[in-house]
């Protein structure tokens, strides 16, 4: 009886855990960001490709010396991406309509529901209330899962450092600026104010207002308003987003939505399965055990007799 009570308790506990967990993760998947989260509205129609943001980022984050000067426009010949040495890069794209080519700055989008954070099993990532997605290099084990999980291909890896392998990416200048209410270095240096810093909620209204007032200037869409559950960095563009290298196939569901069903199953697997299979095993072997016991017992008794 005691064993049966124990198994029953396990089953009830496991069922409760498996029911409770998924509902919790559904709530997480619909998180729309902290109310006072800051953001940056990137108006690509204003960018002139001067690369000042790259230079300012390099100095602010004390990154290594670049391979070529920051006023060298030959880098636009190829499409670059963020690296351990450059948390932000500007790329030039071709305009299909013969207009001047659009430029787009890329950096961490600072998702409301970051895929990197979801995927990190040591919790190295944090989404701060100011909107920044930062990481703790001290706990990072260098597994690179976040690089796979990021839908924007942002986190880079410091392969060059053999003894301190770290994932590196834009942190919204959190430690030196954002935390103190100041805009990131790239925003401050931008001569064109292609980058507008403000409350994310305000920037969305601002973006829609720009589209409404000058509809010829923009595609009627703010990239990042809904993509991947919403991002702190938002993009306005004259051409469709996919023409300036933004992935339009990622959908509006954050990464966590893809794994919440699986993650909801984990407690169930961990609690129900051991109990269930132990129970089945015990039940399956019960008669045999008892038979043996009985047999042995009677044999012993017989021997005694």
């Amino acid at each position: 009886m005691k064993r049966r009570d124990f198994l029953k308790g396990c089953l009830i506990g496991g069922a409760a855990a498996s029911l409770g967990a998924p509902s919790k993760s559904w709530a997480v998947g619909s998180f729309e960001g902290y109310p006072d989260a800051m953001g940056v509205l990137v108006d690509t129609t204003r960018c002139i490709g001067c690369r000042s943001c790259e230079a300012a980022c390099n100095k602010e984050q004390k990154l290594p010396e670049p391979d070529v000067p920051f006023d060298d426009t030959s880098v636009f010949k190829e499409k670059r991406r963020t690296t351990e040495k450059a948390y932000t890069v500007v790329n030039r794209y071709e305009a299909n309509d013969g207009q001047k080519p659009p430029y787009r700055k890329m950096q961490c989008m600072h998702c409301n529901e970051p895929g990197c954070l979801t995927s990190c099993f040591v919790n190295a990532y944090t989404k701060t209330k100011e909107g920044a997605v930062i990481y703790n290099g001290n706990v990072c084990v260098g597994c690179k899962t976040c690089m796979v999980a990021c839908p924007f291909n942002i986190p880079a890896y410091s392969y060059s450092s053999a003894f301190d392998p770290l994932v590196k990416k834009c942190i919204f200048c959190y430690h030196t600026r954002l935390k103190f209410g100041k805009p990131p270095a790239c925003v401050e240096i931008c001569p064109q104010e292609a980058l507008t810093f403000g409350l994310r909620s305000d920037l969305i209204k601002l973006g829609h207002e720009r589209i409404r007032q000058t509809p010829d200037r923009y595609v009627d869409h703010i990239y990042g308003e809904k993509e991947m559950g919403g991002t702190s960095w938002l993009y306005l563009s004259r051409v469709p987003a996919d023409q300036i290298g933004l992935d339009t196939t990622i959908g509006n569901e954050p990464v966590i939505s893809n794994v919440k069903d699986f993650l909801g199953m984990v407690p169930m697997v961990l609690t129900i399965w051991p109990a269930l299979f132990s129970g089945i095993h015990l039940l399956a072997t019960r008669n045999k055990d008892h038979g043996d016991d009985h047999h042995n017992h009677s044999e012993q008794e017989g021997d005694k007799k």
């Binding site: 230079a55 010396e65 391979d67 920051f70 006023d71 060298d72």
Partner: peptide, 16 residues
Amino acid sequence: LYNSGAYTPKNKPAKG
């Protein structure tokens, strides 16, 4: 700031 002029990066090996 721009790593230009007198501060132009010296030609480094392509490694990395």
